[in-house]
Design a protein around this nucleic acid. Structure first.
Length: 740
DNA sequence: AGCACGCCGACT
DNA sequence: GTCGGCGTGCTC
C-alpha cells in the first residue's frame, strides 16, 4: 500500500484492496474445497482452472461453487497463483463431479482431478505463424520464385512457411527470401486441429430390415433431445456398430459433441477405421497410453469444442466437454468399465448419470448385456432394442455341448474325441478352428512328483504357474516370476515336475500331437513379442496362414476371424466355481463372445462346448440360445443374494485380505453402529468382488436401495467408528438409476 | 497424494 | 548410542 496512516489525506487511501475469497477443489484426498484469495486484477469464476499453493507445492485446482463456510484462520489464507487461459468447467460438469464424489464417497478433489489431468494443456497452444501474400513480384524472378508466385496468385493464403514451400515444390529458403522482400504479411493462425471434423453425411450406409428399424429407434430420442437411455441388445455380427453410428450422425447434425466409451482393448485401429469410413474422419482417441502431447491436444480440443467425437476408455467420461450431447457405451457389460483404485466407479453407471444431469441421450450396447442393464430394460428405464439375427448371410454357429463324463479324453489329454474329430474335418475343409481356454501357461498347478512340494508365490502365497515357452514359473496374482528350477527345492530330486490340469500351452502340445502338420498358434496376454507380434498374428489368422488357434480371453474380444468355422471351449466350467457372485453371468458372456467368433462370413460353423455340467443353466442358455430365461434366473438369484435377508435400511458386506481381518472389522462396525442389522462377512475367497489388494486393508461393499439413507449412515459410521478412519474404502454397489 | 513428526527394533 | 521402519496428522 505504501501509504502511512499519518498521511495528510486521512484514511481514504488506507482501505486494503478488496480481495475476494473463493473455494478451490485441489487434487488431494481432502473432504472439500479449500479457500483461496483472488489476487487483485485476476478474474475467476466457478469452473475456472487455477494453480494454487498447497503446503510446499503448487497444484492445479478448480474454482468451485458456494461460499467458504468454514471458519478458517485468516492467517492460513493464501492466494491463487495463476488462472489458466482455458474455458471454465461448465456447471453441468461441476454438478457431475459433485455427484460422483458423493455417490462414490470419494474426495471431490480426486474426482475433479480426473477431469483436469492433462498437465500442460491448460494454456492455449501457441499460434502458428502464417504467411499471407500481399501482391507484387520480386525484382529477380527465379524459376523457384515463379513457382511460389503461381501458387499464391490463386491462393494468397494464409500458408505456413513449410506448407507453402512444400506445395510449390521449392525449399523453405525460397519462401524466406520472398518474405525478406516484404511480399508476405505475417499473420497468426490457430494451430491445426487434432482431428478433422466428422461429417454425418460422408458415407450414409444403406441399411435395411432389422438394422433400419433399430437405427430409427435409436436415432429418434437423439432427434427429440433430452435424457433417455437405450440398450442395443444384438448378437455378435448383427451390425450394432452401424446402428449406433446413425445415432452419432444425428447428434453431429445437431452440433453436439459425442463420446464413445469402449473397453480399452476394443480401442483398435479397426474401430477407428470403421468410424472413418462412415464419417470421413477419425474420432479423437483417449486412453491410458496416449502421449502427453496428444493428451494435451485432445483435452483442449474437447473443452473448446473443436473435437466433436471422442472414442475413449473409461477415463474419457471425465473429459470436460463443452457441449456433450450423446454417450455411447459399447460392450456395456465389460468389467473393464470398473475402476478400482482411488475413486471407485463404474464408468457405465456414471455415464448414465452424466447423461441424466446433462439432459441428453445415452445408448448402451452389448451382445450380452449385464444383469443390471437387463433389469433396467425390463423395468422400462431403458428402451431395449433387439437385434436377434446376424447381418447379411452370416449365421450363428451351431452349438453343442460335449458331456465330458460320457466322452472323456484319452489319458493325459483334455480334448474329447468328439472335438478332435470335428477339428480334423475342419482342417480337411481348409477352414480354421479356435480352441478357447481361459488359462495362461502350461498348467495351473505344478508339484514335485516325489515329495509333493507345491510351488507357492513368496509375495502373495498363491500357486506359481509353469510357463514352458518361457521356461519360467510365474505368479498370476502379483506378477512374480523365476526360472523353472531344475531340482525340487524341498527334496532335491532332479527332473521332478508334474503338471496338474491344462493351460493353453499344454493344450497346444496335445493339439500338435494329434495334428502334427497343422499350423498351430497360441495367443495369450503374456505372449512373447507384445502388441506388435499380436497384431501380426491376427493378420496371419485373417489371411488363412493358421489352421488352429489356441487362446485365452484375448481371443474373445472383437477380433474378426473370417475363416473360423469351429470354436471349441476346452473347459466351459472353469469360471463357474470361483465364488464370484457374477460367475454365471461372466461365464455366459465369455462363452457367447467366444462362440460368436465363428461363422462371420456365411460358412456353416460349429461350436463345441466341453463341460462336466451339461445341465448347468449357463450351458443350457448357451446351447438353446435362450438368453432371456437365463437372465430371468440370474436376476432372481442376484436379488436373493443382495436384498434379503438383510435389513431394509442397508446391508454391508465386509471383506478383507483374510477372513480374520474381516471379522475384526465387522466387530468394530457392529459396535459402532448397532442399528444396522445386516452386516455379513466374507473372506477373500468368497468375495473377490470385494477384495482390494494393495494399500487398502479392507473395503465395504454396500448394497441397498436408498442411497441417501446409506450415505448418512456410512458417514456417521466412519466418523464415529473406532478404527475405520483413513483406511476404509467404501463402494456403493447399487444401481445409480434407482435414485436419480 | 506427499511430506513431516514421532516412537520402537537391529546395527556401526 | 544412532538409522530407519511406517502409523498419524496436515495441507486453504
Amino acid at each position: 500500500m505504501g501509504i502511512d496512516s499519518s498521511d495528510l489525506f486521512g484514511s481514504v487511501f488506507e482501505a486494503p484492496p478488496l480481495v475476494s475469497v473463493v473455494p478451490v477443489l485441489v487434487p488431494l484426498p481432502v473432504p472439500g474445497p479449500y479457500s483461496y484469495a483472488v489476487p487483485e486484477g485476476m478474474h475467476v469464476e466457478p469452473g475456472s482452472v487455477v494453480q494454487v499453493p498447497v503446503g510446499p507445492r503448487q497444484h492445479i485446482g478448480v474454482v468451485w461453487d458456494g461460499v467458504n463456510d468454514d471458519k478458517l484462520d485468516p492467517k492460513k489464507l493464501r492466494s491463487i497463483t495463476l488462472a489458466f487461459d482455458c474455458p471454465p468447467l461448465s456447471a453441468d460438469m461441476r454438478g457431475f463431479i459433485d455427484w460422483v464424489a458423493t455417490y462414490t464417497l470419494s474426495p471431490p478433489g480426486l474426482v475433479a482431478r480426473m477431469a483436469i489431468r492433462a498437465p500442460a494443456a491448460l494454456d492455449p497452444e501457441p499460434m502458428v505463424e502464417g504467411l499471407h501474400y500481399l501482391g507484387g513480384v520480386p525484382e529477380r524472378l527465379t524459376p523457384a520464385r515463379a513457382k511460389v508466385l503461381e501458387l499464391v496468385a490463386n491462393q494468397p493464403g494464409p500458408w505456413t512457411r513449410m506448407g507453402l514451400a512444400h506445395a510449390a515444390g521449392v525449399s523453405a529458403s525460397v519462401v524466406d527470401g520472398m518474405t525478406g522482400k516484404g511480399m508476405f504479411d505475417t499473420v497468426f493462425l490457430a494451430p491445426p486441429p487434432v482431428v478433422a471434423r466428422p461429417d454425418p453425411t460422408y458415407a450414409v450406409p444403406r441399411i435395411e430390415g432389422p438394422q433400419k428399424e433399430a437405427a430409427a429407434e435409436i436415432v429418434e430420442p437423439v432427434r427429440a433431445g433430452g435424457f433417455s437411455a437405450s440398450l442395443i441388445d444384438g448378437v455378435t455380427g448383427s451390425g450394432k456398430t452401424e446402428v449406433y453410428f446413425e445415432a452419432i450422425a444425428e447428434a453431429l447434425r445437431q452440433d453436439k459433441q459425442v463420446l464413445i466409451l469402449l473397453p480399452e482393448i476394443a480401442l483398435t485401429a479397426s474401430f477407428l477405421e470403421r468410424f472413418q469410413d462412415r464419417f470421413g474422419a477419425k474420432p479423437a482417441e483417449w486412453h491410458s497410453d496416449l502421449s502427453p502431447r496428444m493428451r494435451e491436444k485432445v483435452w483442449r480440443g474437447v473443452v473448446t469444442g473443436e473435437v466433436r467425437v471422442v472414442a475413449g476408455a473409461r477415463s474419457a467420461l471425465f473429459l470436460p466437454f463443452e457441449e456433450l450431447g450423446l454417450i455411447i457405451i459399447d460392450e456395456e457389460h465389460d468389467p473393464a468399465y470398473k475402476q478400482e483404485d482411488r475413486v471407485f466407479y463404474n464408468a457405465r453407471d456414471m455415464a448414465v448419470v452424466r447423461a441424466r444431469l446433462g439432459n441428453f441421450p445415452i445408448v448402451l450396447v452389448s451382445a450380452t448385456p449385464s444383469v443390471e442393464s437387463q433389469v433396467n430394460g425390463l423395468s422400462g428405464r431403458y428402451n431395449t432394442v433387439h437385434l436377434p439375427t446376424r447381418f447379411g448371410d452370416a449365421a450363428l454357429p451351431d452349438l453343442h455341448l460335449i458331456d465330458m463324463r460320457r466322452h472323456p479324453p484319452e489319458r493325459g489329454g483334455f480334448l474329447s474325441p468328439l472335438l478332435l474329430r470335428q477339428m480334423a474335418k475342419t482342417i480337411e475343409k481348409g477352414e480354421q478352428s479356435l480352441l478357447f481356454l481361459n488359462r495362461r501357461g502350461y498348467a495351473p498347478l505344478t508339484l514335485c512328483r516325489v515329495c509333493g512340494h507345491r510351488f507357492q508365490c513368496p509375495q502373495c502365497s498363491s500357486w506359481l504357474v509353469e510357463h514352458r515357452f518361457r521356461n519360467q514359473i510365474q505368479c498370476h496374482q502379483c506378477g512374480y516370476h523365476q526360472p523353472t528350477p531344475e531340482a525340487c527345492p524341498d527334496c532335491g530330486t532332479l527332473d521332478h515336475l508334474v503338471a496338474c490340469g491344462p493351460g493353453v500351452e499344454r493344450i497346444a502340445e496335445e493339439v500338435e500331437r494329434h495334428f502334427p502338420d497343422a499350423r498351430t498358434i497360441v495367443m495369450s496376454s503374456d505372449m512373447l513379442g507384445g502388441v506388435k507380434r499380436l497384431r501380426l498374428e491376427l493378420e496371419a489368422i485373417a489371411n488363412g496362414d493358421v489352421d488352429i488357434v489356441i487362446g485365452t480371453q484375448l481371443v474373445a474380444k472383437g477380433h474378426n476371424f473370417p475363416l473360423m468355422t469351429l470354436v471349441g471351449i476346452v473347459d466351459a466350467d472353469l469360471g463357474l466355481s470361483n465364488g464370484d457372485p457374477r460367475a454365471a453371468e461372466r461365464t455366459f458372456q465369455l462363452l457367447s463372445q467366444v462362440t460368436g467368433r465363428a461363422g462371420r462370413t456365411g460358412r456353416k460353423s460349429h461350436g463345441l462346448i466341453q463341460t462336466f455340467q451339461p445341465l448347468h443353466p449357463v450351458m443350457q442358455a448357451i446351447v438353446s440360445g435362450d438368453a432371456e430365461a437365463f437372465y430371468e434366473r440370474e436376476i432372481e438369484e442376484r436379488q436373493k443374494a443382495i436384498l434379503p435377508p438383510f435389513g431394509r435400511l442397508a446391508s454391508l458386506i465386509i471383506s478383507a485380505d483374510t477372513r480374520a481381518d474381516a471379522e475384526t472389522h465387522a466387530r468394530g462396525l457392529r459396535a459402532a453402529a448397532p442399528q444396522v442389522t445386516g452386516i455379513s462377512v466374507l473372506g477373500p475367497a468368497e468375495a473377490p468382488l470385494a477384495l482390494v489388494r494393495g494399500r487398502h486393508r479392507f473395503r465395504l461393499l454396500v448394497h441397498g436401495r436408498r442411497n441417501s439413507d446409506m450415505q448418512a449412515f456410512l458417514k456417521a459410521m466412519i466418523s464415529q467408528g473406532p478404527k475405520q478412519r483413513g483406511s476404509v474404502q467404501i463402494q456403493l454397489d447399487v444401481d445409480p438409476q434407482s435414485f436419480l
